[in-house]
Design a binder for these strands. Sequence first.
RNA 1: GCGCCUGUAGCUCAGUCGGAUAGAGCAACUGCCUUCUAAGCAGUGGGUCAGGGGUUCGAAUCCCUUCAGGCGCGCCA
Length: 539
Amino acid sequence: MHREVREKILQCLKKVDISLTKPIGLEIPKRESYGDISTPVAMDLAKDLKKSPKQIAELIVNNLDKDIFESIEIANPAFINFRFKKEYLFLKLKELLNLGEKFFSIDLGKGKKIQIEFVSANPTGPLHLGHGRGAAVGQALANILKEAGFHVHTEYYINDAGRQIELLGMSVYVALQRLNGKDLPMPDDCYKGEYINEIAQEINEKYGQQIYEKSFDEVGDFLIDYSYKKILNEIKKDLEDFGVVFHNWVSERKLYHTGEVQRAIIKLKELGYIYEHEGALWFRSSAFGDEKDRVVVKSDGSYTYFASDIAYHKNKIERGFHELINIWGSDHHGYIKRVIAAVQALGMNAEQIKILLIQMVNLLREGVPVQMSKRAGNFVTLRELIDEIGTDTTKFIFLTRRHDSHLEFDVEVAKRQSQENPVYYVQYAHARINSIFEKAQWHPKDLDFEIFNEDEIRLLKKILLYPMIFEFAVSMREPHRITFYLQDIAGEFHSYYHKYKVINEDRTLTETRLSLCKALMFVLRHGLRMLGVKAPDRM
RNA sequence: GCGCCUGUAGCUCAGUCGGAUAGAGCAACUGCCUUCUAAGCAGUGGGUCAGGGGUUCGAAUCCCUUCAGGCGCGCCA
């Protein structure tokens, strides 16, 4: 619906020979008295055209094709407020009913290839809350972008090389020794969670003394391999149960083994961005706005983590994506500039890579902050949330915040609150509608939309504006906007449901109201599907 | 010390890259189940948008500054 408005304004501007410098802004007015949809475009144009905003607004209104509007008003300072004709609304409703959820598919992507890399947690321990948040956002983003016509490719980058993974092996080794009566202290930088002991236990049962009697040098590689693979499998299972699916899993090790890391450095050297200083090789990231240059090959000849990351991004670029989206924990923010610098050095525009930071999740229990440390083994896992709170609630809570705002997650409240939880509110609306359709047969033949009352028209308008919200969520890369809309429209429905009987003695009225419910059902299903949340038939 | 993020109702948070009289949910209080699901509805109260300056027709939004909180600042990963 909003697209027709935008289209008409564009046509009109063309007609009066005004060119735009930025896209036409459309808003849903705060007050109903301001109309159904509104644009501040006249005010935006005022500066460029050196005319009063009001004059421009009048010019636009006078030259506008008004067929779908009941009224168009100019309000102070120079908003143009549109109100749709009922017949037009009914036309759109019929279209929606015919198409179902396909009504909401739009082609904004035009086949553009986007890669989203998210979660990418080190396989040194179970996924925790923060990873869950990244997973929920990443998956929802993938869903909406795909729905909007982008070719979306999701990927998990496995940091299965380097120091952390070695520490994992060492942790298991020490746990194994302790299990067999040796009084070895667990080194400070080792992982201490219960899962380490479980892995040690498992290895002990399977292999016993042929492992623990040997030195770490002898069995380290085996332990590392065994442990990280086991953990990675757990991670995969957790994500699967959380409804998150990756098209691809990329191994950091592999980038080393195939020589891609080396080739990436050579490539940068050829491009003139690598120089030697104090025995190390540096990448000239300062040429792209980073505070200082960064080491890629240490003076002892080994690569830094950054080197493999460059290789990984080079690999992404070579696969021909038009846009890369990386979803990181906010504690990596200091890393952004150098990665964007590397991507630019390798020939991509800065606009083609977006790094979304997922802010910290502050964990509370009954209002009391819980200190989380992966190494200390003191944290709430995603698995725990899935089991105790459920995937739908967990996802919904994660998606009821902007990704870059801090989130307080009180586990006890989320568990206890199951009755007042916003996700149930939305799902309940769907279940209620479904129960209506279980009681009534819907034969959308003798519809008479003219009998809609004020409340029904309002609900219909809100339903028909969902595509605008959806489009906005897509272009801003902000799935949480859908979450808020769903809560809003669910509220409208509950209110309506309470006030009117959908099934009643009047055949035509019943059919017509059922049509409205059907339309809303499509919206709820679509929105929930985008968030990765179930739309249950009964509750 | 430098950098990034945040500061909106008692609490948790929205607020369409500058727009109209700042919005939800929770909590509190008052009502509503013989009627399509009460995981619901109707209503009431609640704000100097952290403080101060600036930019302009117009600021929660942009700039400067102060304060408060979080997170980063290795030839670690």
